[in-house]
Amino acid sequence: MKTTAVIVEDLAVAAEVLQKYCVKSGRVTVLNTFSSIEEALPFLCDQVVNLIFLDVEMPGGNGFELLDKLPYSPEVILTTSKTEYAYNAFEYNVTDFLKKPFTYQRFLDALGKLREVSEKKEETEDLSHIYIKSDGKLIRLENDDILYIESMGDYVKFITNEKKIITHNTIKNLTTKINPSIFCKVHRSYIINMNKISDVRENMLYIKGTMIPISKANRTMVMSRLKII
């Protein structure tokens, strides 16, 4: 099965090279190409893709701003000529960092890393529980026991029916670790268990009486996952 992707790159030549490499590899189907984050965002909010080839510096904002606004977390391969973005790449858990100009072999290496990440995700999706580090020990939490996860800066708080557990982590990192069929990022500060929603009112949802905001960027994805009849 081919990987579905979009290219977000303001330089036409660079976009053409990526398109050519994708076709040549036979492993990536490019659904669309965009020259700015303003053009890419509506498409990506409406169409879930596996991968984004993302330039950093573009008209109207940088690539990381696009990732902040997305309602889900696709794999990302950064394409840029500047190495100073390597730290940001680490913070955003990107799959690989391609420094321009790059060869076809280097492109294939990036796709290899993508395959490794996909295999790890498949393993994660089979799990019914997770382990988190807190107070010097590993605590097992069943997915069904977790109501929601709240950001606290460099820490996150796991809320269950019976307790609250704080651990050193970030919402961005957790979106790549937890089961995506159960959990959903609804706001930059919240991941929720979709099975625990009691009701939804405009830009808010409620879980066990707690009001949780739904960001504008995430609303389309959240609503698409509700079984509305």
Rank of each mutant, 00 (worst) to 15 (best):
R219L: 05
L70A: 04
F43I: 00
M221S: 11
D10G: 10
I165P: 03
E119R: 14
I139Q: 03
S215R: 09
F43D: 02
V13S: 09
N203Y: 15
I182C: 08
V8W: 06
D199N: 14
P101G: 07
V6L: 08
L226Y: 07
H168M: 12
E57Y: 01
V117E: 08
D154P: 10
N32R: 10
S73N: 11
A5E: 07
L114T: 06
V13A: 06
S118L: 13
F158H: 06
I146A: 04
E65S: 12
F43V: 02
K163I: 11
A40T: 04
I165E: 06
V56Y: 05
N218P: 00
R27C: 07
D144P: 02
V13C: 02
T176Q: 12
L18I: 14
N62I: 02
T3E: 11
L127V: 04
I166F: 08
D154M: 09
S189N: 13
P71N: 03
K208D: 14
K216H: 15
G60M: 10
N32S: 13
Q19Y: 12
L205F: 11
E38C: 02
F158N: 04
L127N: 15
L111V: 05
I192H: 04
S215N: 11
K163Y: 01
T220D: 06
K208M: 02
Y21S: 10
L205N: 01
T95I: 08
K157I: 11
I159E: 05
P71V: 13
T29I: 05
P101N: 10
E119K: 15
L51I: 12
E142R: 07
F64T: 01
T95C: 09
T4E: 08
P59R: 01
I182Y: 03
E16V: 06
S73E: 07
L67T: 01
T29H: 08
V17P: 08
V23W: 08
K163L: 03
L78I: 15
A86Q: 10
D109Y: 04
V6D: 00
V30K: 00
F53T: 01
K24F: 01
F107C: 08
F102I: 09
T220F: 06
H187E: 06
T4G: 07
G153W: 04
N93D: 14
I165S: 04
T175R: 02
G60P: 03
L226A: 01
K208E: 14
L138V: 12
A217G: 12
L70K: 03
T176N: 12
I228P: 02
I207R: 06
N62W: 04
K208Q: 15
E119D: 14
A15H: 00
P180N: 13
M221G: 00
R201P: 05
Q105L: 02
N32F: 05
T29M: 06
